[in-house]
Nucleic acid binder design. Structure first.
Lengths: 204, 204
DNA sequence: AGTCTAATCTTGACAGCGTCAACATAACAT
DNA sequence: ATGTTATGTTGACGCTGTCAAGATTAGACT
C-alpha cells in the first residue's frame, strides 16, 4: 500500500511527515507559545495521542522542526557564500543581510532554532545537535579566513571575534523578532552599520 | 492595623509585596517557564485566586517584576557611569562588563525584562514602559556623546550605531542565558573583544 | 494462505495551568 | 452601628502534555 494520505483508513500512511508539515505551518502562523500537540493532531485529523507514536514527546517534535529550519538556513547561507564573482566584503555583506533577513522572515522558526525552549533545558536531540553545531563551527572557520584576508581585525582571538560578530547578528535578530525593535523598516541600515564596524576595506 | 504578615488573619496584610518578593525568588530559582500563579500563591500561603485582587492577570505580575529588574539595573548602570575618576573608555568597558554581567548573574530576570513574553505580544504595562523606554533612550544619548568624544565612529548614524552596539551586548547576553554559549568562563574576554571592536583609543 | 507480531491509532484518565463567578470575611468610612 | 468596599476563599471550566489500555491493521514468516 502506498501512502494513502487523506483516505479514511485507520492508519494515516504518512503521519510523521504530515505532522512536521502542519506543525511548521502552525508555528509560523501562531507562534511557538500557541503551538499545542492537541491542536496539531486536530489539524492533521488524528487523535491527540497519535503523534506520540512518531515523536517521544513535544520536545522531540520541536527539535525535528528546528532541524529542518537549520537545513533551510544552511542552504540559503551556502548559496550566498558560493557566489564566486563577489568580493569577500560583498559576500560578508550579503551574509549578514541574509542572516538577519532569515530571522525577520521566519521569526518563529528562528526563535525555535536559537531559543531557550530547546537549548536552555539541554533538550536538544542528538540529531539536532549534529545539524546545528556545524553552523557555529563554520562561523569560526570563516572568521579565521576573513582575518587572514585582512577583512577583519587580526588583533582579536578568532573564537572571541566569531562569538562577538555572531552575537551581534543574533542580538539584532532577537531584538527584532521579540518585538523590542518594533519597526522592521531599518533592518538594512542596521546591517550596513554592522558591516562597517566589523569589516575593513581591502583590495583584492 | 499594621501589616501583620504571617499571622493567621483572614487578610494577609501586605500580599502584593509578598507576592512580588516570592515571585522574584521563584523566577530566579526555577525560571520563567516554571513560574505559575498557583505555586506562587501556595508559597505565600494564600489561595490560588488571591493574587487576582492585586494583579489583573499573570502578565501584570510579570510586568511588575520586570519593572523592579529595570530599576535595579538602572541603579547599577548609573553607579558605573557616575565614576568621574575613570576615562570614558574605561567607563564604557565597565558598562559593557556590567551589562553582560547583570544578564549572566540574573539570567531569568534578564529573560523577563528583554524577552518575548512581555514585548512580543505587546503586553507591557504602561508603568513598565515608562521605566524601560528611557533605558534605550539613554543608550542613544550616550552613543552620541561617545561619538562626539571620538570614542566611537562619527561616520555612522547615531541611532543605528546605538542599535548595533546594544544589539551586540544583548546578543551575547542572550546566547549566554539561553544556554547556547554553555560556558560562562570566557565572558570577560568576549566583553574585551566587543570593546576593542567598537571603541577607539583616545587621549583625554 | 494463514497466523503472529509489531506498528499504529483510539479513548479514557490525570495532574497542572490561568482565570471567571459566586460567596465569605474583615477593614474602613459614615 | 451600619453599609460599602477591599480582600480572601472554593468551585468550575477549558486548555495543556502525557500515560495506560485497548482497537486496528501492516508486514513478516511459516
Amino acid at each position: 500500500m502506498k501512502k494513502n494520505v487523506n483516505k479514511n483508513t485507520y492508519h494515516h500512511g504518512d503521519l510523521r511527515a504530515s505532522l512536521l508539515q502542519a506543525a511548521t505551518d502552525m508555528l509560523a502562523e501562531t507562534g511557538i507559545e500557541n503551538l499545542s500537540l492537541r491542536k496539531l493532531a486536530d489539524r492533521v485529523g488524528v487523535s491527540r495521542t497519535a503523534p506520540y507514536h512518531h515523536f517521544k514527546d513535544k520536545n522531540e517534535l520541536l527539535c525535528a522542526i528546528a532541524e529542518e529550519g537549520f537545513r533551510h538556513w544552511h542552504q540559503q547561507a551556502d548559496s550566498i557564500l558560493a557566489q564566486q564573482e563577489l568580493s569577500a566584503r560583498e559576500k560578508y555583506r550579503q551574509f549578514v543581510h541574509g542572516y538577519i533577513g532569515y530571522a525577520a522572515d521566519n521569526p518563529e522558526m528562528y526563535e525555535l532554532m536559537f531559543g531557550r525552549a530547546i537549548w536552555k533545558q539541554a533538550a536538544a536531540t542528538q540529531s539536532l545537535k549534529d545539524v546545528a553545531y556545524p553552523s557555529f563551527q563554520n562561523q569560526v572557520t570563516m572568521t579565521r579566513k576573513w582575518q587572514e584576508m585582512g577583512l577583519m581585525s587580526k588583533d582579536e582571538d578568532t573564537l572571541r571575534l566569531a562569538q562577538v560578530t555572531w552575537g551581534t547578528m543574533h542580538g539584532i535578530a532577537r531584538l527584532l523578532i521579540d518585538g523590542i525593535y518594533a519597526d522592521n523598516s531599518h533592518i538594512d541600515e542596521m546591517c550596513e552599520t554592522l558591516v562597517n564596524l566589523f569589516v575593513n576595506e581591502v583590495d583584492e
